[in-house]
Design a protein around this nucleic acid. Structure first.
Lengths: 168, 168
DNA sequence: TTCTAATTGGATATATAATATCCATAATGG
DNA sequence: CCATTATGGATATTATATATCCAATTAGAA
């Protein structure tokens, strides 16, 4: 019942991209350094986000990945499904049918369980589809308008400090 | 994000016990035959249900396991937690802290994610704690008063057929 | 055009957890 | 005492997640 580590990594990637200058795609090699995994592995992870349609990629020189849409339109569900596929809690191995093979109630019981668990699935889908990347950033940073920077050079703190200075 | 096969096995066990004559404990060896696993493995599974407090066991001759409480008081959450422990979706490896190490927002972001996911956990707990074994049996069998039988000898269909005949 | 930097995709290794079994021990009823 | 059953430890097997390497492709820049 635990989400995979990939979900956590995916969230980090989205956060990085959401605060990245839109003009400059972020190279997955850079992300891999930051998250402490190999460049080749990070490419596998980012690829999943591309396939899901949350991220777009451009190969070649000065290439990399960037968000495919606004942070307000990217949800936690997107990230989870990118990494794990559709949410399906029930491990449907047909055991009910096997166990109660002789009885005519096996089929009915099997269907009942499926519907009970898929109702649970729906609860999660509903919940996670309402949590957007923008929500996370807003609450996490305590500000509504996102700062943008180039993660290849700067850190988030640098930018936030600078803005604070401007405010004074 | 999938529940383990053990949950499905646990559900089958509860269903068997719920329709078992209360006077006669059901031997786990009998259950193992029905679910198609080895007796030794089945004992591991049933043990989890005992530890969780949904099932009681008596060793020795004519021993076995039986429900520790009424089917109306046994929930899907009980079975799930017996098999997998508390529901915790978030794979908290501290990656956020690692990735945004330099920034002062890492801590805040980490806590935010934890709370977001534990809210998801609560949704599931709430839902699964409301689905009882009695609900499953009632809907699965289409009747409210549960038939009881001895699974060592009979099958569920036998009993239900018999009752149907009585009704005529 | 050629070089470099980047994604893509296939093959594969490693780690971890789930699944499963065996065996020795303890407990219970006849 | 004997047969039967649960308990607990050790361990094997399988599946999945995690991770890496390498060859191929694509795009921009010199």
């Amino acid at each position: 019942m635990q989400l995979t580590k990939g979900v956590e990594q995916g969230i980090c990637i989205i956060v990085l991209l959401a605060t990245q200058e839109s003009s400059a795609p972020l190279a997955s090699d850079e992300i891999s350094r930051r998250l402490g995994v190999s460049p080749s592995y990070m490419k596998k992870i980012t690829r999943k986000l591309v396939v899901q349609g949350v991220v777009v990629s451009v190969p070649g020189n000065n290439g990399g990945i960037s968000l495919a849409k606004a942070a307000t339109d990217i949800t936690l569900l997107d990230v989870i499904e990118a990494m794990e596929g559709p949410i399906r809690m029930y491990p449907d191995t047909g055991l009910i049918s096997l166990a109660f093979h002789e009885g005519r109630y096996a089929q009915k019981g099997q269907e009942l369980l499926r519907s009970v668990f898929s109702q649970g699935d729906r609860l999660l889908v509903e919940y996670f589809s309402k949590v957007t990347a923008a929500d996370l950033l807003k609450e996490g940073l305590g500000m509504s308008d996102l700062p943008t920077l180039n993660w290849n050079r700067e850190t988030l703190s640098d930018v936030l400090d600078k803005e604070q200075d401007d405010f004074k």
